[in-house]
Structure formats: structure tokens, C-alpha cells
Simulated scan of single mutants.
Amino acid sequence: MLVFSTSDKGGAGRSVTSCNLAYRLCLSGKDVAYLDFTFGSPTAGALFEIDDVARGATSGGLHSYLLGSVGFPAGVDVHAMTDRAALRSSASRAAKLVLFPGDKGGAEFLTVNDGMVHRCADLLSQLERTFEVVVVDLSAGRSAALELALRATALPQLRAHTVRWLVFHRWSRQHILAAAGLVHGPNGLLRVGREWGHDAVCLLESVRYVRTAVPSVAALSMMSHPAQAAWLAEQDEVLKRLASSNRLGASALLGTTPVEPVLQWREQVILDVDVDAHIANPATADAFVELAHRLLDDGTWESF
């Protein structure tokens, strides 16, 4: 399975949620490859707390591979190489999790050529033969990374593969509108995908949304003045109607993640030991487990 994580705006929680999703998938027994296609800022290594690749690989990363400088990109075993002891110790009860970082100092690609597209497709095809889930974290917006992913998955060698697109947005008016535009807009995923050979209906069926850092209206209301509590409840309903009218409603939703202080202060993988120590909230870990389950559940991806 190929999973592409994207968002129209930065700060949507795409990368940190995708890393946590990858970790929960490997805890469930799935071998996972994680590709850092955030070419302008390849820092997935920092999220997995691997100091050697915190800002990308020193050589042979995804930039080098896509440009044809190396035959295969460098991969890093997360459990073996992480500097976080608790994450290393979880290896005994987890499947394989391998990070493929971009190059340190690498920049966003200005253009995408046919050679890059075919190398991308070859890499994804090879990785899917080794890993059960391949998570590709794309740069925000209508980026070269998004074009590369769309063009590669339209090629015959990947058309028969299961491909799923996760569009991340925060629970705000601006993020809802941005996410809708990224998918349905004039230069959005569906239109551009169709131009590169995708069937728009099939492509739409492979898209689901993830709402991140969603506050609990009930919890906020308990701490608020009655007037403020009423306003918060009203705004939550307004956002629900806005999401529905922009085709981001419940039927298109993969799941949500709650506001989590640990992630606001320090973007990281939430481990069970963090929950047991009462540092991270149980609801956050539960949300990542549920996202992993729904990602793999075919029923979640039935036509809507």
C-alpha cells in the first residue's frame, strides 16, 4: 500500500501525525517505509529523534536518488538508530520501520522531469515489494513533490497498486478552505491528477481527510464563561457545516487527532510510556491507533 500525506498549508500537523501513524502501523505488525518528500525541509529524522539525519542524509538521500546520482537512496532503521532509548526498546514488539530521508541541505525541486518521475515510480514499486505500507510525506501545497507523486502513480507499473491520499488540515476556517482547494480547486489534486492520466473518480475515492489538533468543545466549555462556551459550540457547528459544504464532511473523514500539549511543545512520536507517565494524553495515542486501523480498513475507503 502506498500512502501519500499532503496538506495545502504548513503547520497542519501533517508530518508529526504521519510519523506517529507510521509508528503505530509498525506496532501493529506492519513493515513500514517512511519517505521524506518534504524536499525543502527534510527533517523527519528529527521527529524520529535520529540526530545523524535530523536535517537529512549527509549523502545519498532522496534528492540524490531522484536526480540520478545514486542507484538507491539511503535508508535508516528507526528503531536501531534513534537516539531515544524508549523508542529503541520498542523494537522487540514492533515490525520494521525504515526512514528514507532527503539530502541535508537539499531544496525544493523547481521542476519535475520524466527521469525523476520514472525513478520515483521504480523506488515506490521496489519498496512496496519489501514493505507492507509505504508512507510518503509530501511538501505542503501544490509542490513539485505532489506533482511527482501524481505523475508516478499514474504510470502503468503503479496503477494496480493500492494508493491512498491523506489530506491534513487543522480545525479552522482557513485550513478547511485550503484543504478543499487543494483537492477540488482549479489547480488541485483531482484536476492535475486527471491531466497526468488519473481517473478523477477513482482518485477522489482514494482521498480522505485528517483533522489535527481538534479541541474538545465540551472540555473548553467547562472552563469558559457561559457566553464564551455558547460561542465555542456555535463555531464548532459552523466549521462542521463548512467542512460538509466543501466535501470534507464525515463521509470523507479518516479521523481526527486532539489538541496535545506534548506535540505543541515538542513534535515527536508519542509512545505508550509517555501515556503511562501521564505526559501525553491517552486520547492522542488512541487517535493514532484508530487512524492506523482505519487506513488499513477497506470499509473506510468504500465510495462516498
Results as ranks from 00 to 15, higher is better:
residue 191 R to Q: 09
residue 174 Q to L: 09
residue 256 T to P: 13
residue 234 E to N: 15
residue 195 E to I: 00
residue 219 A to C: 11
residue 228 Q to N: 12
residue 174 Q to M: 12
residue 208 R to M: 04
residue 181 G to L: 07
residue 248 L to V: 02
residue 160 A to M: 09
residue 228 Q to Y: 13
residue 206 S to T: 07
residue 235 Q to N: 14
residue 221 S to N: 11
residue 220 L to S: 12
residue 276 D to F: 06
residue 240 K to M: 08
residue 180 A to M: 07
residue 275 V to Y: 05
residue 252 A to P: 08
residue 209 Y to E: 10
residue 191 R to N: 06
residue 254 L to Q: 07
residue 178 A to P: 00
residue 169 H to W: 04
residue 261 P to I: 10
residue 218 A to Y: 11
residue 189 L to T: 05
residue 268 Q to D: 11
residue 277 A to I: 14
residue 182 L to V: 01
residue 284 T to Q: 01
residue 163 V to H: 04
residue 193 G to D: 04
residue 229 A to W: 00
residue 278 H to A: 15
residue 190 L to D: 02
residue 263 L to Y: 09
residue 202 C to I: 09
residue 197 G to N: 02
residue 166 L to P: 03
residue 234 E to F: 04
residue 233 A to C: 10
residue 195 E to N: 10
residue 224 S to V: 01
residue 160 A to E: 10
residue 243 A to W: 03
residue 181 G to R: 07
residue 251 S to D: 14
residue 262 V to Y: 08
residue 247 R to E: 14
residue 270 I to D: 03
residue 267 E to Q: 10
residue 247 R to Q: 13
residue 272 D to P: 09
residue 223 M to N: 15
residue 226 P to A: 01
residue 280 A to V: 00
residue 281 N to P: 14
residue 283 A to S: 12
residue 234 E to G: 08
residue 265 W to L: 15
residue 220 L to P: 06
residue 249 G to I: 03
residue 277 A to W: 10
residue 223 M to A: 11
